[in-house]
C-alpha cells in the first residue's frame, strides 16, 4: 500500500514512473497484458467495476478501477506490497458489468501473477500451493473426525487416497511455472 513515508510528500511523480518504465524497457501495461489482462487498455475508468467490488466497499486501497488506472500510468513497485489483489474473491461481478469487457478480475489476477514473479506473495498463498502439491488439496485438514462423524470414509476418493493420481498431479505441477519460480519445495 502506498503510504507517504514520514517527511515524503504524498504525491505521485508520473515522470519518475515513466522514466522507470523506460529504464527497465518494459511497459507495465504490456506485462499485465501478457499475464492475462489483455483488455486492460480498453478501460475508460467509468467505475462500474468499483461500484460492485467487495474490496472497494470495505476499504482496500487498490481496488479494480484504481488498480487499472495505476497500471495504465505505469505503476508497479508502488503496488508490490499492497494486499488488495490478494484479497480479490474473484467474484467476477465486475466482469459482468464492465461496459468495455476489460474483465477487472483478470487484471487483479494478472497483477497477482506479476507480483509472484517479484516474490511479493502472501504466506497464506504459499501454504495453499504447498498443500496443493503435497496432497492435491489447497485446503487440507488432517483431522478426520468430522468425516467419520457424518458416516464417511476417512479419506475422500481424491488424490488424498490415490497415490497415482497425486503423482500425476505433481508431474503436471513440476512442468509449470510454479516449479520455475521455486516458491515451494518440489523435490520428490
Amino acid at each position: 500500500m502506498i503510504e507517504s513515508e514520514e517527511g515524503v510528500p504524498n504525491v505521485l511523480n508520473l515522470s519518475e514512473i515513466a522514466e522507470r518504465e523506460r529504464e527497465e524497457d518494459e511497459r507495465v501495461v504490456e506485462i499485465v497484458r501478457e499475464f492475462g489482462a489483455e483488455n486492460l487498455i480498453y478501460c475508460m475508468q467509468c467505475g462500474s467495476c468499483a461500484a460492485v467490488c467487495p474490496l472497494a466497499r470495505v476499504g482496500f486501497e487498490w481496488y479494480n478501477k484504481k488498480l487499472i488506472k495505476a497500471l495504465l500510468l505505469g505503476m508497479k513497485e508502488e503496488l508490490l506490497d499492497d494486499p488488495t489483489p490478494w484479497a480479490c474473491v474473484a467474484c467476477n461481478r465486475c466482469t459482468e458489468v464492465c461496459p468495455r469487457q476489460v474483465s477487472p478480475f483478470e487484471v487483479m489476477f494478472a497483477v497477482r501473477r506479476m507480483m509472484v514473479e517479484e516474490f511479493a506473495i502472501p504466506t497464506l498463498a504459499i501454504e495453499g500451493l504447498r498443500a496443493l502439491y503435497e496432497y492435491g488439496h489447497a485446503v487440507y485438514m488432517t483431522g478426520r473426525e468430522a468425516r467419520k462423524k457424518v458416516g464417511l470414509p476417512e479419506k475422500p476418493p481424491s488424490t488424498d487416497s490415490d497415490e497415482q493420481a497425486l503423482k500425476d498431479l505433481k508431474t503436471i505441477l513440476k512442468n509449470t511455472k510454479l516449479a520455475k519460480l521455486g516458491l515451494i519445495p518440489m523435490n520428490d
Binding site: L14, S15, K69, A70
Partner: peptide
Amino acid sequence: YDAEIGKPVEVVT
C-alpha cells in the same frame, strides 16, 4: 490531481 487514484500528481514536461 488524479481523481481516479485520489492523489496529487506531478509531471515534468
